[in-house]
Simulated scan of single mutants.
Amino acid sequence: MGIGEAAALLGVGMAAGTINVVVGSGTLVTFPTLLAFGYSPVVANVTNTVGLVSGSLSGIHGYRTEIGDFRAKRAGRLARLIAASLLGATTGALLLLVLPPKAFKAIVPALIALALVLIVVQPRLAKRIAARREAAGDGSRDRGWGVLAAVYGTGVYGGYFGAAQGVLLMAILGLTYADHLQVLNGVKNVLACVVNAVAAVLFILVGTFGGGPAVQWGPAAAIAIGALIGGQIGARVGRRLPPKVLRGLIITVGLVAIVSMLV
């Protein structure tokens, strides 16, 4: 890995770390960059997953107060949400490792397109969530197994690829709990971190001992350092970024990724 590649991956890692903490679509920045440097889609995905774990951890640290507020009220519920994410991530990561690389290359453009649609509709979704929260007052709509199933499904998606899983989680949490959005964003960061960490561990183990796609440690380290810094930026000042500018950047990069995988 040359100096230019390392610098580029450090930069996009920082951007992804910031984006993941704020909205949760950082993969749409780092994944296309890895493709542009010539890595195969599956190798780029496992490398990206490992690299972005540090950003998730950084985001959790930045939102530790909000996470503590949620845990104080619903410690048991938070534990069950984490368990659902863990199981979902394991399922999704195993699917990535079991299915042939051609399947990933065929499926991922559709997943990226889905992620871009979610990002486009996110403002409307946020308004609906706010309206339901206002109607609920201080209560919540904890649907038990229903919300756990939805979080599990998001974990499967995140373990397999992961772009915009944060958008999905925010929709699920926002429609279920009446807590402040920043509190739910903290919980989102916890669940996304669980998914990324579980998938990363499986990818490392299988790539090292099981003959699976090998993590490229140089690029992963560059992304990790950038994401670690970006996670702190996202937790402190990322909320001030103009939403339209952020969404426009993510959509542009996502479209480039789709084109790069189809040609």
Rank of each mutant, 00 (worst) to 15 (best):
A83P: 04
A84P: 15
S85N: 10
S85G: 14
S85V: 03
L86P: 01
L86V: 07
L87I: 03
T90G: 07
T90N: 14
T90R: 02
T91Y: 12
L95A: 12
L96K: 02
L96N: 09
L97Y: 09
L97C: 00
L97V: 02
L99E: 05
P100G: 09
P101F: 01
A103Q: 08
F104C: 08
F104E: 13
K105G: 12
A106R: 12
A106M: 08
I107N: 11
V108E: 14
P109L: 05
P109H: 12
A110M: 07
A110E: 01
I112R: 04
I112M: 13
L114V: 11
L114K: 01
V117K: 03
V117I: 15
V117E: 12
L118H: 05
I119Q: 07
V121Q: 06
P123I: 14
A126K: 10
K127T: 07
K127P: 06
A130T: 10
A130L: 13
R133Q: 14
A135Y: 07
A136L: 13
A136F: 12
A136Q: 08
D138T: 07
S140I: 00
R141K: 13
W145L: 12
G146K: 02
G146I: 14
V147L: 04
A150N: 11
A150D: 08
Y152Q: 06
Y152G: 14
G153L: 14
G153Y: 09
G155V: 03
G155Y: 02
Y157K: 00
G158K: 04
Y160H: 00
F161Y: 09
G166S: 08
V167T: 08
L168P: 08
L169M: 13
L169E: 09
A171S: 03
L173V: 10
L173G: 03
G174N: 05
T176I: 05
T176R: 01
Y177E: 01
Y177S: 12
A178P: 02
L181C: 02
Q182Y: 08
L184G: 00
N185P: 12
V187M: 03
V187P: 04
V190K: 09
V194W: 15
N196G: 02
A197W: 08
A197P: 05
A199F: 14
A199W: 11
V201A: 13
I204N: 03
I204V: 14
G207M: 05
G207P: 08
G207H: 06
G210I: 11
G210N: 11
G212Y: 09
G212K: 12
G212F: 10
